[in-house]
């Protein structure tokens, strides 16, 4: 099952790369389905097959 995160404050590819790096460093690299910039300084991250407690971990990583 996929979990989608909406991320505020993403405005450029450097932000995308930073978040991707954080995810990789914390063992989520295989779970990333997509990480894209959206309009209005927002981004969207889709992860697959993550546990319920991973949602909080990912949120903390991004924040």
């Amino acid at each position: 099952m996929n979990t989608t995160f909406t991320i505020d404050g993403m405005h450029c590819q450097a932000c995308v790369s930073l978040i991707r790096m954080e995810l990789e460093d914390n063992g989520f690299e295989d779970k990333v389905v997509s990480l894209e910039l959206k309009d209005d300084n927002k981004g969207e991250l889709v992860l697959e097959g993550i546990e319920e407690n991973d949602v909080q971990i990912v949120s903390d990583l991004i924040n």
Partner: peptide, 13 residues
């Protein structure tokens, strides 16, 4: 480099 995120990204990488 064009923003603060670039600075952090380069430093960390």
């Amino acid at each position: 480099m064009h923003c603060a995120s670039c600075e952090i990204l380069i430093e960390r990488k």
